[in-house]
């Protein structure tokens, strides 16, 4: 696969005059089989790009819902290798939908950066979002990833002023992820206008697509944000719905569909935004 899947996905959405829809799945939550089925079902349900959360014991930027999901996954024996295996399994069925791995640096550091990039490339990973690697630490993973042709997607936030934005954009690739709030995952967007302004400000400084995540909960949110952003990420609502479907932390018959149903509904919202 020499074609850049991320680029292609955004081109397709642009052609259809809509934002890309990007749901999140926490790898191994509540178990590998269920999270694999959710991931495998995403494209049919309207996902353009998939974000796969790599669980970490101490996820500093995540709220209680995403954190708890990761802890259940870890308790059930999820590892970075198993997450990579899930991506590889997905790739055998789908060669188009881009996969972004999202998580924290330590498990990658311990896996070994070169080893990780090799395995990620082989599995069919397209991009990485590593929350605790700001531009100041580009030498750790960002530059090696770019060399390995894996996009390194960086977060910008309401605290990223114009001066700082230059630094953040420097080695960014794939797309820019605008974190719509100062805070943790699971909080709610309160001001669409502010987000719109921020997206426009970032777009004036980069050719890369600008996607918005954190705080998108309803089809209306998705619609409002998808009007101006190039992509819309949703996570906590999906994890919450999945959590609600469990019995004694175990998946039920409804689990996979309870997530995919929301994905369908929000994907529709995004498609009606413009």
């Amino acid at each position: 696969m020499s074609e850049n899947r991320i680029k292609k996905a955004f081109e397709k959405c642009k052609h259809e005059n809509r934002a890309a829809f990007m749901p999140f799945v926490s790898a191994g939550y509540p178990d590998i089989k269920t999270s694999q089925a959710i991931m495998d079902g995403f494209p049919q349900a309207g996902a353009d790009i998939i974000e796969v959360g790599m669980p970490f014991s101490d996820p500093m930027a995540d709220g209680p819902i995403v954190e708890a999901a990761g802890h259940v996954a870890l308790k059930n024996g999820q590892t970075l290798q198993k997450t990579l295996n899930m991506v590889a399994s997905f790739r055998q069925k789908d060669s188009e939908t881009p996969i972004i791995l999202m998580g924290y640096y330590n498990p990658i550091y311990i896996f070994g950066v070169d080893n990780f990039l090799d395995e990620a490339k082989k599995a069919g990973v397209d991009g990485l979002i590593v929350v605790d690697l700001p531009s100041e630490e580009d030498g750790e993973l960002c530059l090696p990833a770019l060399k390995a042709n894996i996009d390194f997607i960086r977060l910008t936030t309401p605290t990223t002023n114009d001066e700082r934005l230059k630094t953040v954009l420097k080695n960014s690739s794939g797309f820019i992820y605008y974190v719509s709030i100062t805070g943790i995952t699971g909080s709610k967007i309160t001001n669409y206008d502010k987000v719109e302004k921020a997206v426009k400000r970032i777009k004036s400084q980069t050719e890369l697509p600008v996607c918005v995540g954190f705080g998108i909960k309803t089809a209306d949110d998705a619609k409002a944000i998808g009007k101006h952003a190039d992509g819309v990420v949703i996570a906590s609502v999906l994890i919450k719905a999945l959590g609600d479907s469990l019995e004694n932390e175990k998946a039920t018959k409804q689990s996979v569909n309870s997530v995919l149903e929301i994905v369908r509904s929000l994907a529709k919202g995004v498609r009606q935004a413009r």
């Binding site: 500093m60 930027a61 640096y105 929350v131 605790d132 690697l133 700001p134 531009s135 100041e136 630490e137 960086r154 977060l155 910008t156 936030t157 309401p158 605290t159 990223t160 002023n161 700082r164 953040v168 974190v179 100062t182």
Partner: peptide, 20 residues
């Protein structure tokens, strides 16, 4: 200048905190 003591130290934080 980057907060490193040999290989240790650094600034491994979310972007939100970098300006602070």
């Amino acid at each position: 200048e980057n907060g490193n003591f040999g290989i240790f130290g650094g600034r491994f934080v979310a972007e939100t905190l970098m300006p602070l």
